[in-house]
Structure formats: structure tokens, C-alpha cells
Amino acid sequence: MIVLGLTGSIGMGKSTTAEMFADLGCPVHSADAAVHRLYTGAAAPLIEARFPGTVRSGVVDRGMLGTRVLGDPAALRDLEAIVHPLVRAEEVRFLAEAREAGARLAVLDIPLLFETGGELRVDRTLVVSAPPEVQRARVLARPGMTPERFEAILKQQMPDDEKRRRADFVVETGDGLAGARRQVETILAGLTGDENKAGTRI
């Protein structure tokens, strides 16, 4: 089984691209979704212990936690030390289940793939990318997002051009969903040995 690490900076269309792989029959594990689950479960008491007041009724207040860690490298490292091992344990279970099910390709959707050395845990890497002006417009359209918060998030992420340089594949999302879908189909067909069957489910 091939393990594909999928990543991309904020606003690039990473989650949508991961959904395209899922629609084509690939098992996909989202690190973001795993974090959401952990913030209502195993991670919540650990985060409250380190960042008092950030958990309400057993659920992590993501806005409050973000305010505490953005711009504070030491606090961010402490948060990562809590969350990353729990997410990776979920990944291990996910990959074992995918192999047991006979999947030819499984996707790990990891926002900070290169930043955390995650490329060492996968066979191939894919970066989702879009022009800077498209990225900025998408992100600033999100509820509660400000230019200052956007810039703070970007500082925590590897520059897009560096991610593109490191990746085995790049999916461009700036021209819309149809074009991105065709790119995903081509990549999937090549990785699974179905070069003549692009567009079919695996």
C-alpha cells in the first residue's frame, strides 16, 4: 500500500482536495478532524492542565487556545507535544485498517507535513497550492479572520514555494474544482498503476 502525505498552507484547498481522493475510493485520514475529536476527548484535560481556562464543559475552546499560542513559540511547542502523539496514534490505527482492507493507496491529510518531518512517515508527498492573491482572498473571507491573524498563521507555516519544491506532486486549485479534480485523478491513476483509467474509482 502506498501512503500519500497531502498538505498545503491555509486557504490552498487542502481539505477539498483530500475529499476528492475520498470520493475516488481512497481511505483518507484528516489530522484536522482528528484534532477536533481529541479536543472533545483525550486531549482536553491535558490542554487544560497546560493552558488553564481554555477548556469549557470538557471541550477545548479553539479560539481561546489560538490566542494563547499564536505568536508564542514555546507555548506552541507545548501544545504540539500534547496533540501530535495522539494524532499519530490515530494515524497508525488508520493505516493498519486500510492495509487490512486491501487499499492500494491511503492518504494522510497533514497540515504541517513538512514542518513536522511528516514526510518521513509517507511514501509520496502532495502539496495543494494556489496563487497568493487567491489564498489571501479565501482566508480573509472566513468568519473571524483578520489580516493580522492570517499573517501570524503564515509565519508558522513553511512558504508555499518551498513546499512545492519538496513535494512529489502539486495540485493547483486556483482555477477551480474541475481542474483540481482532473489533477487528482491523474495522480491517483499513476500511483495505483491505472494510467489508462483516470477518472475511475479504485
Rank of each mutant, 00 (worst) to 15 (best):
V3C: 11
G5P: 05
T7D: 14
I10A: 09
G13N: 12
G13H: 10
T17P: 08
E19S: 09
E19M: 11
E19K: 10
F21Q: 08
P27A: 08
S30P: 06
A31E: 11
A31V: 12
A33T: 11
L38W: 01
G41Y: 05
A43Q: 04
P45Q: 13
E48C: 07
R50Y: 03
R50C: 13
G53L: 02
G53Q: 04
R56I: 09
R56Y: 05
V59P: 03
V60H: 02
L70V: 12
G71T: 08
D72G: 05
A74V: 13
A75V: 12
A75R: 11
D78Y: 03
E80C: 12
P85A: 05
L86Q: 05
R88I: 11
A89M: 01
E91D: 14
V92A: 15
E100K: 10
V107L: 05
V107R: 00
P111M: 14
L113T: 02
G117E: 02
E119C: 05
L120N: 08
L120A: 15
L120R: 14
R121L: 14
D123N: 09
D123C: 00
R124I: 01
T125W: 12
V127C: 12
V128G: 01
P132D: 07
R136Y: 02
R136L: 12
A137K: 15
A141L: 05
P143G: 13
M145L: 06
M145E: 04
T146R: 10
E148W: 03
R149E: 13
F150R: 04
E151T: 14
Q156S: 14
Q157P: 00
Q157N: 02
P159Y: 01
D161F: 14
R165T: 06
R166C: 06
R166N: 01
D168H: 15
D168T: 11
D168A: 14
V171K: 04
T173I: 02
L177A: 14
A178G: 10
R181A: 04
V184D: 12
V184K: 09
V184R: 12
L188A: 07
A189R: 02
L191Q: 07
G193M: 04
D194A: 15
R201E: 12
